[in-house]
């Protein structure tokens, strides 16, 4: 292969240099170097930090009681110095609610991804490692889940689990029990892509000689999976989990927007939008600010995830 063939591969211009020129760098340094080249990813990271500061730092200045305080006489007030983002249909301060709503949305995003990732790894690993009947059953199941559009599945599951979980009190704050329901159903409806990725990784890694060697020395299956294969397939998992947070935040927003998600008084960016389409003209601040915050968060995470993919998992491709 001439230089040209290598250099022509526009997507991996660094391959040439990595292969022939530079002394091998530690993997993390290399990843960080690639990541830094992504200006948009850096920007996404900075924005995300600002958004987290907004949601979690904001609560130092505004009490949750204030965010949930209804005051009908001042309902649907236009933005002013006192209420910079205006007030909602029952006179709550929209700015304060975006702060607390952001906390819940982000927490839901992260916890749902933890469930999603655990399920995805578990199912993908079992299918990929054991193969055979287990594999074909699990993959059929995965495929079946993938074929039902996610929103429909979310709606059905939201109904299925209903509002049977009572409100919880945690760290002196009361959360609607529906928060837990939403976290669980988002986790349950989003693990499929990761399961496929993990399965593919397992299928290719388990053919390697070092796995054969581990087997030959009598290492148990669980240990091989956890110690040998999983660490080698961690890059796509990290990327998928990062992007998964954005998707989980979106899912929460969709389901709450449809009125089947987190129930008031607990605010989320999604349920602040519920019913907002009745106020498109009369009170655009009702939907504009939470909508914009969702967009910015998802955008930042997507930029970040894209950079992360290029940095640690350069062989895969964005869709």
């Amino acid at each position: 292969m001439g230089i040209l063939n290598i250099m022509i591969a526009e997507s991996t211009p660094n391959l040439f240099v990595d292969d022939l020129e530079t002394p091998p760098l530690p993997l993390t340094t290399l990843a960080w170097k690639r990541f830094k080249r992504h200006r948009m990813a850096m920007l996404g990271g900075v924005f995300l930090i600002l958004l987290v500061l907004y949601s979690f730092g904001g609560s130092l200045f505004v009490e949750e009681k204030y965010a949930n305080f209804t005051n009908p006489p001042i309902r649907l007030n236009t933005p002013s110095w006192q209420h910079p983002f205006g007030t909602d249909t029952v006179g709550r301060d929209v700015l304060a609610r975006t702060i607390y709503g952001g906390q819940i949305s982000m927490i839901i995003g992260i916890l749902a991804v933890i469930i999603e990732t655990s399920l995805g790894i578990l199912i993908g690993a079992l299918a990929g490692y054991y193969g055979g009947t287990i594999d074909s059953l699990l993959m059929r199941f995965t495929e079946a889940m993938l074929n039902i559009p996610e929103i429909f599945l979310l709606i059905v599951m939201a109904k299925f689990f209903g509002n049977k979980i009572p409100n919880l009190t945690l760290l002196g704050r009361t959360f609607s029990g529906s928060v837990v329901v939403i976290i669980v159903i988002i986790g349950l409806t989003s693990w499929m892509y990761l399961a496929r990725i993990v399965r593919a990784e397992f299928l290719s890694i388990k053919e390697n000689d070092f796995i054969l060697a581990a087997k030959a020395t009598g290492t148990s299956n669980t240990e091989i999976i956890i110690r040998h294969i999983l660490p080698n397939s961690i890059a796509p998992i990290i990327v998928s989990a990062t992007l998964g947070i954005a998707n989980a935040i979106l899912s929460e927003a969709y389901i709450s927007f449809l009125g089947l998600g987190v129930q008031p008084p607990t605010a989320t960016w999604g349920n602040m939008l519920d019913g907002a389409n009745n106020y498109i003209e009369s009170a655009p601040w009702l939907w504009f600010f939470p909508g914009l915050l969702i967009l910015l968060t998802v955008l930042s995470i997507n930029f970040l995830g894209d950079g992360l993919r290029d940095a640690i998992d350069p062989h895969s491709r964005a869709i």
């Binding site: 948009m40 954005a246 979106l250 927003a253 969709y254 927007f257 939008l273 907002a276 389409n277 498109i280 003209e281 655009p284 939907w287 504009f288 909508g291 914009l292 969702i294 967009l295 998802v298 955008l299 997507n302 930029f303 894209d306």
Partner: peptide, 18 residues
């Protein structure tokens, strides 16, 4: 396209209606 890809549908809808 990154912005478009990150847009929740309801936000696109509400914004375009507005």
């Amino acid at each position: 396209s990154f912005i478009g890809y990150s847009m929740p549908i309801f936000f696109i809808a509400l914004l375009s209606m507005y």
